[in-house]
Simulated scan of single mutants.
Amino acid sequence: MSDLEATVSYDTPYAVIQHERLDFHHSEGQAKYLEGPLEENRGTLQELIATEVRRATGG
């Protein structure tokens, strides 16, 4: 399963900048705001994605 990949994205113009700029100072939240929750929930997210892929492909 290590060759599978998933992408999370936002369609707002500022999202990439807010995520990537480590020099921005946030009164709430932080830069790289997607990475923490992803890493903390990696196993659960992998299972959810796998379940949806199996459902969509009849597997």
Rank of each mutant, 00 (worst) to 15 (best):
E40F: 05
I17Q: 10
L45C: 02
A15C: 05
E5P: 03
D23T: 07
A6H: 04
N41C: 03
Q46R: 14
K32A: 12
L22N: 09
H26K: 07
A15F: 01
T44F: 07
S27H: 11
G29I: 02
G36N: 09
Q30E: 12
T44Q: 12
V53I: 15
H19F: 01
L4F: 14
G59P: 01
R21M: 12
L45Q: 01
Y10N: 10
L48E: 12
M1L: 13
R55C: 03
E39Y: 04
I49V: 15
A6Y: 08
E20R: 11
Q46T: 11
T57Y: 05
G43E: 15
D3H: 10
A50W: 00
T44H: 08
Q30I: 00
P13L: 09
N41H: 12
Y14I: 03
R21I: 05
L48H: 08
T51D: 14
E20S: 11
L4R: 14
L22V: 09
P13R: 09
L48N: 11
G29F: 03
L22P: 00
G43Q: 14
L38E: 03
G29H: 04
P37K: 02
H25R: 15
E5Q: 15
L34I: 09
S9L: 12
T51C: 02
E47A: 10
L4D: 11
D3S: 15
L45H: 00
V53W: 07
T57C: 04
N41P: 01
P37H: 01
R42Y: 10
A50C: 06
P37A: 05
A31K: 04
D11T: 13
R54F: 11
Y10L: 07
R42L: 14
G43N: 13
G29K: 05
L4V: 10
A50K: 00
G36S: 14
R21G: 02
S2R: 14
A15E: 02
M1P: 01
L38H: 04
R54V: 09
A6L: 05
E28K: 10
E28I: 08
V8K: 00
S9C: 09
A50T: 06
R21N: 14
I49Y: 01
T51L: 09
E5T: 13
A6G: 08
Q30N: 13
A56K: 12
R42D: 07
Y10C: 08
A56G: 09
